[in-house]
Every structure is written in C-alpha cells, then in structure tokens.
Design a binder for these strands. Sequence first.
RNA 1: GUGGGCGUGGCCUAGCGGUUAAGGCGCCAGGUUGUGGCCCUGGAGAUCGAGGGUUCAAAUCCCUCCGUCCACCCCA
Length: 427
Amino acid sequence: MADSDSFAKAQKFLAPRGTADVLPDEWAYWRFVRDTAERVCESFGYRRIETPVFGHAGVWLRTSGSGTDIVEKEMYLFEDRGGDQLALRPEGTADVMRSYVEHGMASLPQPVRLYYVAPNFRYDRPQAGRYRQHTQLGVEAVGDPDALLDAEVIDVLRTFFTQLGLRDYTIKLNTIGDMACRPAYVEALRGYYRPLLSQVCDDCRTRFEKNPLRLLDCKEERCQPAIAGAPRLHDYLCQDCRDHFQRLRDCLAALDIEYAIDERLVRGLDYYTRTVFEFHPAIEGAQSSMGSGGRYDGLIELLGGPPTPGVGFGSGFERLILNLKRQEAEIPLEQDPTLFIALVAAEAAPLALRLADRVRSEGLQVVIGSPGRSLRTLLRHADQKRASYVAIIGRKELDSGDITLRAMHDHTERTVGVDEVADAVRP
RNA sequence: GUGGGCGUGGCCUAGCGGUUAAGGCGCCAGGUUGUGGCCCUGGAGAUCGAGGGUUCAAAUCCCUCCGUCCACCCCA
C-alpha cells in the first residue's frame, strides 16, 4: 500500500473498495426494490424498525458465533473516543433483537412483526454480488414458536420476489434441530469425523473444532466421501423438532410454496435453530443466495433477554437488482417532468423561479433549464428530459408579462398568463 | 486469505517499440441573429492507473505496487 499522498495522486479519491455509488440512472432499481419491500412487508402487518448502523461489538460477538467468518474476520471493529468497542453492523437480526429487549417489546402482543431496510458491513473480498457495504431487507417475527410464522416469513419473501417480477428461483429448506437434540448430533458427528481428520481439508479440521455442522457443506472434492458417510442430522431430531418441521411443511403446502429439502443446508450464523432456508436464482452465479434466514429461538437469551423464539430472513438488494437485470425485468420508469422552463433571457430568473414554484405547488414536476442558453439548446434539453411542455421566457415574454407555452408532442404554441400555466399543462 | 483477467478523455473502444495518441457515444457551440428529436460543421476534454527499469526512442517490452472485475472461500 502506497502512502496516502501518492495514493491520492495516483488514484484520486475513489469510493472505498467494495462500496459503490448508486447513481441516478441506477436509482430506479433501488426505488423499485425498496418500495416493493415496504409494501409487501406492511401488507403482512410487519412494522418498520431502524437501528443504528453501528453498535456495541458484543451484540454480534456474543450472538453470531466465534467460529463464523462474519465475526472472526469480517467485522469492522473500532474503538470510539470514549474507549467503547464498537462495530459497523455486520448483520441485522442481532441488533433488532437487542432493541426488542431494550424496549421491552416482550410486553406487546406476541409475535412482534418487524422489518427494516438497512446497510450491513463486512470486510470481505468483493466480487459480483458481494460488497463490503450491502443493503438488506430484514424481516423478523419475534415471540411465537409456531411453525406458522416460519411459513409466514417464507411467504413474505416469496411474495416480495413475485411482486418484483423475479422468476425461476428455487427454495432450499432444512431443519437443523434445537438445543435439545443438536448437541447429541454434534457429538455423533465429531465421533464420526475424528478418525477421518487426516483425510479432510484444513478448513474442515477447523470446522471440526469450532463449528462442526459446517463440515457438511464443505465443497472440497477430498471431503465429499467423508460427508457422504456422515451421520444424518435428521436421524437425531427430537420429537418437537420433527413436529415443528412437519407443521412448517403443512403450512407451506397450504400456500402452494414449492421447495427442496437440502440436508446439507446450514447457515453461517450460529444462532439458528430448527428451520433454515435459502432462495436461489435459477441462473447460478457464485453469489447465488438472494434471500435466506431461519429460526433463532435462543438468540434473545444470548443478549440477556428472557427465552424468546424468533424467525426471520435477510435479502440483499444488490443481488436482487443484479438478478432483475439478468432477467431484463420491467421496472417502473422515472417520472418525466411536466414542464420545462426555457429561460432564454437570463435576467428573467425571478419570473422563472416564481412560475416554477407555482406550478410545483399543483403537484407537477418542473425543471428550469440552464439560463442563457440558446432556445435551440434549451428545447433540445427539454426533449431529452421528455418534458411535456416548455415555458419559454425570453425578451418578448419579459416585456409582455405572458409566457409562451409549447406543447412538445404536437409543436403547438400559445401565449398564457403566468397564473394559467399550471392549468394549461396539467395532464 | 487463495487464484486468474483487465487498467488509453465522463463512457465504450482502436493503437501493442518511432502516430500532433485515433474513433464512437456523451458534452459545448454553430448551421436556423427565438424553436426539439434527424443531419452537417467546429470545439473542449487524456500527465495512455502509479513508480521504477530496458532502449537512441515506451501507451506499446520487463519488474513492483495500486485499482478493478471474475472465481475459490464465505455470505445477502
């Protein structure tokens, strides 16, 4: 890394690695995805919550699991001037649960349904669909253990995708047991792997120690034989977990939601219990998950709250937009301005400003063109912005006090008073 | 953390040892001294990612670094 001076000279100033500017042309996608997310969540009775972009590092250090990449090597950690250990939010669920406890939401009727759209930060190596700052829709149903809610949040995500026009995705579903049955399985898995450790990859040896469930989704060729012969989690599930999973399946059937059970599916965060799921696009890129989540019945206890069940998911906007583009999906167009003011006589600026305000107060979009350009140039600009009408203000209009109003679609012009412009251009 | 591709005006690209570094899009102005989409003319805008090396001569060859993209890993 060069020193900062030569860096600045060589590269100018660029957005930090793994971050991106959302430029005006791109914003149409963002607005569409955000508006759709808000509409869908609210249609299910979920209410908006916002938590700070940074928080006490312990919120994530305690909940996400010491063996996970997110905590171990991807957190943006910093100390503030008062000496507090803080972190840029790496994921949304834990801090929303912190807020649930902090604000006594347990005293509200349960479940509490919450959603948020917020940036997350992870120090990862960027590639397609993966950024150091990314924006997620998060949805959480807190305080009710019923599998109906697992089905409900999956339905929220399914509906969100449908409303976006995303097609050809698949849903992977699994159950990973709970604190009653998973420990016995983990022991069985360790017992099985112990004699095989010399045959598996380095990462798997680490997983064996820190996060044994992840042994199952190793992609290394040499580890596949070990995975194939491993004990199956589903053989160790307790009756409660079996019942929960069956009820979830019944609920999904009622909703006509199709899915594939994938016993290899485990999640990257330690707090998940029972249900886990992922939504994948049919066109598989490397960063294929467009939304994923599960149940986290022990999470709130880890944060010092009472035993409280919860279930939810996260869905990354950047990946959704990537898939919308790949699919060449239709998105709502930007609104065209109704009126473009061609200020040929720059000295008439006060008149132009008053006229623009007056027409805007009627709820119409008005753009003032660069003052002092030739009328020819101004009309070209108006055309490029697809304005419906152009109000021409030059010497002639300045003298008479009236406005020349040109209808762009048929090239007709008429003279109107300043007070009549809004009515004349209203669609 | 590990691999691979690529860095030439705002964008896309040509040039691959000797060129005033070329073209398209976009931008500005004019052709119509107040009238758009097409067309025509002109203009502005590039220390060819940075530093070092080879050479009489480097955008072009070599090295290092930086950036970026793609993949692994991980995940949204």
